[in-house]
Computed example of a mutant assay.
Amino acid sequence: MAKKKIQVELFRSPIATQPRHKLCVKGLGLSKIGQVRELEDTPAVRGMINKVSYMVRVVGE
């Protein structure tokens, strides 16, 4: 059975954010604005996306 994938894009800089939010962005594998990563759709990934929803957007599911 294939696992579901989700695409996440960083559209805002994490420079002036809380240290934990910077770690969430790093944990998602994002480092540059405009970068898109394809990740497995798990509760942990969804939680990180929800925490930094003001910096990332879900491009595709």
Rank of each mutant, 00 (worst) to 15 (best):
M1Q: 09
M1V: 11
A2M: 11
A2N: 12
A2Q: 12
K3F: 04
K4M: 09
K4T: 05
K5R: 11
K5C: 00
I6H: 01
I6Q: 00
Q7N: 06
Q7W: 05
E9F: 02
L10A: 04
L10Y: 08
F11G: 03
F11I: 15
R12I: 03
R12D: 08
R12K: 15
S13D: 10
P14A: 15
P14K: 01
P14S: 14
I15T: 10
I15M: 13
A16N: 10
A16R: 10
T17A: 08
Q18A: 03
Q18F: 04
H21I: 03
K22Q: 14
V25W: 00
K26R: 14
G27M: 05
G27Y: 01
L28G: 01
L30I: 07
L30V: 02
K32V: 06
Q35A: 09
V36R: 14
V36N: 09
R37Y: 04
R37M: 15
E38W: 07
L39G: 04
E40W: 05
D41K: 04
D41M: 02
A44S: 13
A44H: 06
R46G: 07
R46A: 15
R46Y: 09
G47D: 13
M48R: 08
I49S: 00
I49V: 15
I49R: 02
K51S: 11
K51R: 15
K51N: 09
S53Q: 08
S53R: 11
M55V: 06
M55S: 03
V56L: 05
R57T: 01
R57F: 03
V58K: 03
V58Q: 01
V59C: 12
G60R: 14
E61H: 10
E61K: 15
E61L: 14
E61T: 14
E61V: 14
